[in-house]
């Protein structure tokens, strides 16, 4: 059964200028209940890898540099 890869617009936006994941910070990745935030191997910064968001906001609230913004998922807006 072959599979395809589709894209989707994700609700969590990380400001790469402010994100300090490349210096070892893992706060947003640690607190996400759905485990959808991961390190982007190209940039070393945090990003949303899976579109499975409950827009619950610990990632934004706990980020030490205010780099994370949680938007409402497009399907719900």
């Amino acid at each position: 059964m072959p599979t395809a890869t589709q894209i989707s617009m994700v609700p969590v936006v990380v400001d790469n200028e402010k994100c300090i994941a490349d210096k070892g910070c893992r706060t947003c990745i640690d607190v996400c209940p759905l485990d959808v935030l991961w390190i982007d191997e190209k940039t070393g910064k945090a990003h949303m890898r899976y579109d499975e968001c409950w827009y619950c906001m610990p990632c934004e609230a706990d980020c030490p540099t205010d780099a994370v913004t949680v938007n409402i998922p497009y399907l719900l807006r």
């Binding site: 640690d30 607190v31 996400c32 209940p33 759905l34 485990d35 619950c56 906001m57 610990p58 609230a61 706990d62």
Partner: peptide, 12 residues
């Protein structure tokens, strides 16, 4: 399954 710091129905 997640992290006890922010898990479950009362994560926030």
């Amino acid at each position: 399954k997640a992290n006890v710091k922010r898990s479950g129905a009362i994560s926030m």
